[in-house]
């Protein structure tokens, strides 16, 4: 199972296939950040939110720019279409922690401000969640750097 096959699945929005391939790729090379970046998105689409959050925290701890600098068009990032759907759900009163956290993850691929807003909302529901606090610390620092 090669990363290239995972890329093809990811490109064609076959998230289940992509998640399977990237899981194998990361088993062999846990430092493959490109595979991790796509794996996070794939996991959010197959309902593995906890694993997605864990990998997301790992990745932004190592290299937050890898996600922040994503160009949605040039990098064929599906996040805009994915957040659209999730935000529709929040309008239907599904403002669960998982949904807010996932929106925070996905928005970071497109817009850091919106991402931080969702993570703050998620923290409001679970103030002591370790992942959320770590993520917010990193992202708020990053935002200050940017400004």
């Amino acid at each position: 199972m090669h990363e290239m096959l995972g890329n093809q699945y990811f490109m064609t929005r076959n998230y289940l296939g992509a998640a399977e391939v990237f899981a194998n790729v990361l088993k062999e090379d846990p430092n493959n950040l490109n595979a991790k970046k796509k794996m996070i998105v794939s996991l959010t689409q197959i309902g593995k939110y906890e694993k997605a959050a864990q990998l997301f925290t790992e990745l932004i701890s190592d290299n937050p720019d890898l996600i922040i600098n994503t160009d949605p068009v040039k990098d064929d990032c599906p996040c805009y279409e994915l957040v659209d759907r999730l935000e529709e759900m929040t309008k239907l009163n599904d403002e669960s922690f998982t949904t807010l956290q996932t929106l925070g993850i996905l928005w970071l691929y497109c817009d850091i401000n919106k991402s931080i807003n969702y993570f703050r909302k998620a923290k409001g529901l679970k103030p002591s969640d370790k992942n959320i606090n770590t993520v917010l610390n990193i992202l708020e620092k990053k935002l200050q750097e940017i400004h």
């Binding site: 090669h2 290239m4 096959l5 093809q8 699945y9 490109m11 064609t12 929005r13 076959n14 064929d76």
Partner: peptide, 23 residues
């Protein structure tokens, strides 16, 4: 450009020849 954006074929999704070779 990504090949799927150039060729815009359904086959890119179902029957990508390179994916078939990789598999």
């Amino acid at each position: 450009e990504y090949c799927k954006n150039v060729f815009k074929s359904k086959l890119c999704y179902a029957d990508c020849p390179i994916a078939l070779v990789l598999n």
